[in-house]
Design a binder for these strands. Structure first.
Length: 507
RNA sequence: GGCAGGGUAGCUCAGGUGGUUAGAGCACGGCACUCAUAAUGCCGGGGUCGCGGGUUCGAGUCCCGCCCCUGCUACCA
């Protein structure tokens, strides 16, 4: 790890309720794509994912299921982690906010702020509408016609509660300066504009503790209260580094927080302010992704007709879903998911362009050269290096859809090259030297495609790398090696069909 | 209401600082080829560049007005 540039990236931690959906999958896949790409570049990547388990809804969900909250969140964590494994997420760590290491981190962060900026934590009254059914305060969005959505027969009570507060207002200028200067990069631009605007309007202090909630981290020095959402959830990024134990600086600050566009402000305002108060370095960048839409509406559990994540994976496999979400849906903007589009992309690009190229190339090496890659040069290399450059520029800027497009363009170019050089004609005419050049070019291209495709379709990348007789896992390859990559002399395996097309389109 | 972004071929989108016949992919039609997952390649049809004015020799690209869509407008992750 020493010597290599450190790259610590995180995803938002998910609520412990229900199954993950496509929108959450997009975030994890996007972050994983970035993580895998950074590893290809040679960065010392540390990729964190995890679960947010202290929400009030956990208690109710557990009660409904007849289990303890701890059992409930354990189940949920297993469910989520299972999906992320199926999607080939390569996270190095997995944090749950109910873990002792996280409670220690949260406590230590609060104590550190208390120590360095004692005036920034203070006790005051929080006033809000309290639902006796839910036993919690309700926000405007949770109130319909003056009643709690879940308990419309109960009256909401205007209640005051003594809570611990954080002097968020004191950090407006400092946070604004960090964002304006780019020290804290907020991307894409539209999210940065929104956050800057919010900061310009000014900030209010926020309450950071709650009474009557046993399910949570005890507030330091106040056994009556537990730490409220912000300080609990956001701190996971820090507590996962081992903070406050020595050595956490090896990872902190985070290089990139990947979050949904709906929670950018927490990551770009409250979180930086917390860190400033604690005199800790700020994350370098926050990237907000868009949502996956289904028939024009946001993907969520309440949208009954929406596709489930399991169905989407089952359709054509995890690689295909990853590719589709990153290529067609995109990461920065909202994008539509439909079976028609998914099937079309899968068929025309993964199966016909890429999968077919791999198959026909390796089949010809078997048919004409007994499966041994010949030595030779070819015009394809020049195009390949150009496209690899374009790919890198796009991926460096986290424009994942563009990166995927350049990757696929290389496969398309190789198909065109075959049509131009007509290797079967060369074989018939006995033009062995020319045929060697063509087949060698194709073998190099297939290998490069395997490496470039790793961030998008990791399973297929490993398969293709293996077919080419690559030594060691494809994850061990570095982008810098691609220019001189040459599998000449290797025995290649008989190629399978990488992305099989269903006979009839499933309904 | 305020602020921000967007409305370009059937669909998804590219189109730095204004300049010859507005591009790509998919889908569609024709042709070629056979190594390959009836796969590949080539050619082609298809667009009042949201609407209306203006600046300019010339605007999708600048200015004004209008219409429509999306996001943000803070203690829900």
């Amino acid at each position: 790890m020493s010597g290599l540039p450190k790259f610590y990236l995180t995803t938002a931690i998910d609520y412990s309720n229900g199954d993950p959906h496509l929108g959450q999958a997009l975030e994890k896949i996007g972050a994983d794509c970035i993580a895998r790409y950074r590893r290809l570049r040679g960065d010392a990547v540390h990729f964190l994912m995890g679960m947010d388990e202290h929400s009030q809804s956990v208690i109710q969900a557990a009660a409904r299921a007849g289990v303890t909250p701890a059992q409930w969140v354990g189940r949920m964590a297993d469910t989520f982690a299972g999906y992320w494994r199926r999607l080939h997420c390569s996270n190095d760590d997995w944090i749950r906010t109910t873990e002792p290491r996280h409670a220690r981190g949260v406590t230590a962060l609060l104590e550190r702020i208390q120590q360095r900026q004692p005036g920034d934590l203070f006790v005051a009254d929080y006033e809000g509408l309290y639902c006796t059914g839910c036993e919690e305060f309700k926000t405007e969005a949770q109130i319909v016609n003056g009643h709690c959505i879940e308990h419309p027969t109960l009256e909401l009570i205007r209640t005051r509660e003594r809570n611990h507060f954080f002097r968020l207002s004191a950090y407006r200028d400092a946070v604004l300066e960090r964002i304006r200067s780019g020290a804290l990069a907020v991307e894409p631009q539209i999210r940065r504009n929104e956050v800057v605007r919010l900061l310009e309007d000014g900030l209010q202090d926020i309450s950071i503790s709650r009474q009557r909630q046993a399910w949570g981290i005890p507030f330091p020095g106040d056994t009556e209260q537990t730490v409220y959402v912000w300080f609990d959830a956001l701190t996971n990024y820090l507590s996962a580094t081992g903070f406050p134990d020595a050595g956490y600086e090896r990872l902190w600050p985070a290089d990139l927080h990947v979050v949904g566009k709906n929670i950018t402000r927490f990551h770009c305002i409250i979180w930086p302010a917390m860190l400033l108060a604690a005199d800790l370095p700020l994350p370098r960048a926050v990237r907000a992704h868009g949502f996956v839409l289904w028939e024009g509406t946001k993907m969520s559990k309440t949208a009954g007709t929406a596709v489930t994540l399991g169905e989407a994976i089952d359709r054509h496999g995890a690689d295909a879903l990853r590719y589709f979400l990153l290529r067609e849906v995109g990461f920065d903007n909202d994008g539509e998911f439909t079976w028609e589009r998914f099937d079309a992309r899968y068929s025309s690009e993964l199966a016909d362009t890429l999968g077919n190229l791999v198959k026909r190339s390796l089949d010809m090496i078997h048919r004409y050269r007994g499966g041994v890659v010949p030595r030779g040069t070819g015009a394809l290399d020049e195009a390949a290096l150009g496209l690899i450059g374009a790919y890198q520029r796009a991926m460096d800027a986290a424009r994942l859809d563009e990166g995927a497009a350049h990757w696929m363009q290389l496969a398309a170019r190789a198909n065109g090259y075959i049509q131009e050089t007509l290797p079967w004609e060369l074989a018939k005419a006995g033009k062995d030297a020319e045929l060697d050049h063509v087949l060698a070019s194709l073998a190099r291209t297939v290998g490069r495609l395997a490496v470039l495709g790793l961030p998008f379709t990791p399973a297929a990348a490993a398969t293709v790398w293996g077919l080419l007789g690559g030594s060691g896992p494809v994850e061990g390859v570095r982008l810098g090696e691609l220019e001189t990559f040459d599998p000449a002399g290797r025995q290649v395996a008989k190629p399978p069909i990488l992305f099989p097309k269903p006979k009839a389109a499933p309904a």
